[in-house]
């Protein structure tokens, strides 16, 4: 892995992303969903924090959408 890239786990899948960017900048690469919520390393990240949340190597991202439930 180069210094310009980080490796993250998004919904259980390994992804390589450009280093030094925020969650808001990476999101178009991570999902096409309109309605979703995010947790990083099992901590909820509110939408208001996307622009200042910088992803780092090894982050585990959970990106969830509405689903059927009982």
């Amino acid at each position: 892995m180069s210094a310009t890239e980080i490796s993250v786990l998004c919904n259980g899948e390994h992804k390589r992303l450009a280093a030094g960017r925020t969650l808001a900048e990476h999101l178009p690469q991570l999902t096409q969903a309109c309605d979703f919520a995010v947790a990083i390393n099992a901590v909820f990240v509110p939408k208001s924090a996307y622009a200042e949340t910088r992803l780092v190597d090894g982050d585990r991202i959970e990106l969830v959408i509405p689903m059927q439930g009982g």
């Binding site: 959970e62 959408i65 689903m67």
Partner: peptide, 17 residues
């Protein structure tokens, strides 16, 4: 309702919502 990872073939998605 629930929330789940968006995975191919896992249901949910725009039709359900």
């Amino acid at each position: 309702v629930a929330l789940r990872r968006q995975l191919p073939g896992a249901g949910g998605g725009e039709d359900f919502w």
